[in-house]
Design a protein around this nucleic acid. Sequence first.
DNA 1: ATGAAAGCGCTAACAT
DNA 2: ATGTTAGCGCTTTCAT
Lengths: 334, 334
Amino acid sequence: MVTLKQLAKELNVSISTVSKALNNSEEIGEETVRRVKELAQLYNYRPNKVALSLKNNKTKTIGVIIPNILNRFLAKVLFGIEREASKHGYNIITCISNESLTKEKESLQLLANGSVDGFILSVAEESQIKNEVEHFRNTITQGLPIVMFDRVAHDVLCDKVIVDDFDSTYNATKSLIEEGRKHIVFISNIYDLSVGKLREHGYNKAIIENSNLQPTVIRIKKEDDHQQEIKSLFKKNKNIDGIIAADTSSSIIAINTAVNLGLKVPKQLSIIGFASKSESDLAMPKLTTIRQHAKDIGAIAAELLIKRIQNTGPTEDVKTKIVKTTLVKNESTL
Amino acid sequence: MVTLKQLAKELNVSISTVSKALNNSEEIGEETVRRVKELAQLYNYRPNKVALSLKNNKTKTIGVIIPNILNRFLAKVLFGIEREASKHGYNIITCISNESLTKEKESLQLLANGSVDGFILSVAEESQIKNEVEHFRNTITQGLPIVMFDRVAHDVLCDKVIVDDFDSTYNATKSLIEEGRKHIVFISNIYDLSVGKLREHGYNKAIIENSNLQPTVIRIKKEDDHQQEIKSLFKKNKNIDGIIAADTSSSIIAINTAVNLGLKVPKQLSIIGFASKSESDLAMPKLTTIRQHAKDIGAIAAELLIKRIQNTGPTEDVKTKIVKTTLVKNESTL
DNA sequence: ATGAAAGCGCTAACAT
DNA sequence: ATGTTAGCGCTTTCAT
């Protein structure tokens, strides 16, 4: 990489002259500017990012800590973050906490050494279960803003972007009730997470509001064989006619299992799950889905963070943005 | 963030004393070391990463450019890269090219300004189609090593990690032939990519080696309705008894469609596709898969790059590592 | 045992 | 119009 120093030497001028010329300073003579720019072009000069960061005490880099990149929703949010950040000239450093509290703490610590200007993160499962938030608070105290999305720690004071999880299952459940379904089951393999709980509550509320219905919640452990669990659910409860699934794979597997057992979907059984467009196409009939607008969530989070980073003024109050889900009717409901 | 300067001031010693004390230099007195370390601990001092990078001319950061983070295989590779990098104390800056040549060039340019010590990337679709490689060469010439994985540019001199794509479909096809299948079709929605072509060739070779069989290749465009395309394939060709799919969604949709049309899988029809464990469980019967060991690919790529970054010695010859796929028998084959 | 000073690449206030 | 200098935070060589 060429430096100002080298350019200056070759042109027989001072470093600051070169710097000013490249930054279109009025101070420098036309002819000099031309010569400098020509040589810079020739050598493909780029200002050293690290030197700029040190000088400005700004890295133009965002730290993103996500629990699991193989989760399609989270991957999609990351996509949204990257695109928005890139639009504003920011890079993203990605750390994967792998749902571990320790890794989450480490990543935060590691990047809070001047590597990034702020963080966007979704809380790891372990952290949510243990309800640990001190590491977030410490980071914020150190002057590094955090924006949390989806899985947030409600008692940490920072910007947040969340999904209307409660409402989404509440409404989805109600739509099945309106179809005339009488035995609606809720399936979840994320019952430990804040969002999983909210989704469960939304379902429960909708069911309980109809005094003649009974809530049934099936919790599937990650390590269990989903196909097996769902199959035995159907075998034990022959009268199930509706399913709300809190996660994608449960809903797709539910459709496949039902079809394989000879149940007519959606004639005898309606199924709704959280999934993206491409995922809903993997099921046949295509899954009626609750869309979370993951990319938007990422973009909003990035926007919030960048605003906060660049806002040198008085500390604004923290914001919580709610991104509403959309219920997209496909073939797995009436 | 506390700096050495602040610590030095508070302790009434010089900056260099503090620096040495923290780095366990023999030069500094026991008592001083103790005092310094105590205060550093108290203030939670961390050496400023940016300053270190500038000083050492090393960022301990890897630039990763992937075409699409919503592709599960690529996401998984990213996961592998992150884990391996993190093990060696490296961070990763992720850029998403979105299959666009322009974005790929920009990302490379943008990070080649001292932000990273090297790159790991998979070539964007557009770059592969247009066969553009100059930007890779430029980057390498600038002294930044590149490791390519999966979709590689064969005429760029750099380390590569690839999958034995040709062999994997060749072997998979042969296994269906050995099952006694007579009408084996190849389905692909990645026919434009280097890996897609190799997979197609592997299939063709296996078929052609059996003079009594005919190759049939179905290419599905990304924007088409996969379910519709595959359904009409089955309707037009009633005698299909084997499918090799080059991509995950084609294979899962093929199973669902077949089951919905009343075909017995695997009795009348065997299906093999590229997919991960969790994806193969989405189909019922579970998909027999070609596993690509994405995480390993990521880890190997990271390892290669880090070695090359740290190897100040004579330029070693570039390496191409081939990660062999595994054919995992599930329920969609005999 | 401790400190001063230079230098990594850059910008900007301050000379000339 | 051009140059000198200081400083961002750190390490390291060279005084003292």
